[in-house]
C-alpha cells in the first residue's frame, strides 16, 4: 500500500527528509530521484536464501593441511591468488569453522583424528576433498596404509582433482561450493 505524500499517514508531511548540502548535489540527487521513482535498493527474498547468501560469503575453513596439497592451499590464501576476497579466512578451531578442506593423503593412522574433527564442527558444515589423494587415493592407491579417498570416512561435497590442483582450481572448487550452498534452499523445496 503506497503512501501518498501529503496524506494523513505520511510522517514527513510532504517534506523531504533528506537535506542535501550544495556540493553533494551531483551524486545524491540521483539517489533522491531514484528513491522517488521507487528504485530504492530494497530486496525481497525468502529468509532461507538470505541466510544461504550470508553463509556462502563467509566460509571459514579449518586449518587442516595434511601433505603436499597443503602448500598449494597456503598459496591460495596468499595475496597472489587471495582467498580473502571470497570471504575465506583460515581458522584453527574446529568448533568455529564451516568447511574442512582435506588437502593431502589420508593415512589410516590419521583417519580417526579426521573423524573427530569432523564431528566437532558445528552444522552447517561442508567438506572439500582437495587433490587426488583425498579424492581416491591418488598416486598411493596401491599402498597398505592409505585410505582410498576421504569420502570413506566423512561425506564430501566438492571434489577438486589435481596433483596438486592449482590455486585457481581450488578457487573454482570453493565457488562450486558456494553455488551448492546458494541452491540448497531451492533443493529442499524440490525445485
Amino acid at each position: 500500500m503506497a503512501i501518498e505524500p501529503g496524506s494523513l499517514s505520511d510522517p514527513n508531511n510532504g517534506k523531504d527528509r533528506l537535506i542535501l548540502p550544495e556540493e553533494a548535489k551531483g551524486v545524491w540527487s540521483d539517489i533522491k530521484e531514484n528513491r522517488k521513482s521507487g528504485i530504492s535498493g530494497v530486496v525481497t527474498l525468502k529468509s532461507e536464501e538470505l541466510f544461504a547468501m550470508a553463509r556462502k560469503s563467509s566460509l571459514w575453513p579449518l586449518t587442516f593441511g595434511l601433505a603436499c596439497c597443503a602448500i598449494e592451499m597456503i598459496s591460495t590464501y596468499m595475496p597472489n591468488h587471495d582467498f580473502d576476497r571470497f570471504g575465506v579466512v583460515t581458522w584453527p578451531s574446529p568448533r568455529q569453522s564451516d568447511v574442512m578442506i582435506v588437502a593431502g593423503t589420508v593415512v589410516k593412522k590419521m583417519a580417526e583424528p579426521i573423524k573427530l574433527l569432523y564431528e566437532q564442527m558445528a552444522s552447517p558444515k561442508w567438506v572439500i576433498a582437495m587433490g587426488s589423494c583425498a579424492t581416491c587415493g591418488g598416486p598411493y592407491v596401491r599402498s597398505y596404509s592409505v585410505v582410498m579417498g576421504v569420502d570413506q570416512i566423512i561425506p564430501v561435497d566438492v571434489y577438486v582433482p589435481g596433483c596438486p590442483p592449482r590455486p585457481e582450481a581450488l578457487l573454482g572448487g570453493v565457488m562450486e561450493l558456494q553455488d551448492i550452498i546458494q541452491n540448497e534452499p531451492r533443493k529442499k523445496r524440490g525445485l
Binding site: 593415512v107 593412522k109 598411493y140 596401491r142 596404509s145 592409505v146
Partner: peptide, 14 residues
C-alpha cells in the same frame, strides 16, 4: 609420527 606414512619405500618395489 606416522600420520603421513604412505608406504613409499614398499611402493617402489612395484
Amino acid at each position: 609420527i606416522g600420520y603421513l606414512h604412505r608406504g613409499s619405500e614398499k611402493l617402489t618395489e612395484g
